[in-house]
Amino acid sequence: MTLVKLTSVAVLAVALSACQSLFAPNYRAPLEVKREAWEHVKPGCSESDCPLVNIDTVHFPDLPKLDAIVESRLLQLTEDNQRSTTPTSLKAYETQYLASAEKRNSSYLQAKVREQHDGLVIVEFSSYLDSGGAHGMPGRAFINYSRKQDKVLTLQDMLVAGQEETFWKTVEESHRAWMISTGMDKDAEFVKTWPFKKSPHIALTYGAVVVKYEVYAIAPYSMGHIELKIPYPRLNGVLKPELFPGRG
Rank of each mutant, 00 (worst) to 15 (best):
R35A: 06
R35M: 02
R35V: 09
E36Y: 14
W38V: 01
W38A: 01
E39H: 09
H40E: 11
V41D: 03
P43Q: 02
P43H: 11
G44F: 15
C45D: 09
S46Q: 08
S46T: 15
S46P: 00
E47P: 00
E47H: 03
E47N: 02
E47F: 01
S48N: 06
S48T: 15
P51N: 05
P51F: 05
L52H: 08
V53Q: 07
I55E: 12
I55D: 05
D56E: 14
T57R: 06
T57D: 05
T57E: 08
V58P: 11
V58F: 15
V58I: 15
F60E: 08
D62P: 07
D62L: 11
L63T: 14
L66T: 12
D67Q: 03
D67H: 14
I69K: 04
V70A: 07
V70K: 04
E71H: 08
E71V: 07
S72G: 00
R73F: 06
R73N: 13
L74D: 04
L75R: 01
Q76A: 12
L77M: 14
T78D: 06
T78G: 10
E79I: 09
D80L: 09
N81G: 02
N81C: 06
N81E: 09
Q82L: 12
R83L: 09
R83N: 04
S84I: 09
T85I: 14
T86R: 00
P87S: 07
P87H: 03
T88L: 09
S89K: 00
L90M: 10
K91G: 12
A92Y: 00
Y93N: 10
Y93M: 11
Y93H: 14
Y93T: 03
E94P: 10
E94R: 08
Q96F: 04
Q96E: 13
Y97H: 12
Y97P: 06
L98W: 03
L98A: 02
A99V: 12
S100A: 12
S100E: 09
K103D: 07
K103S: 13
K103N: 06
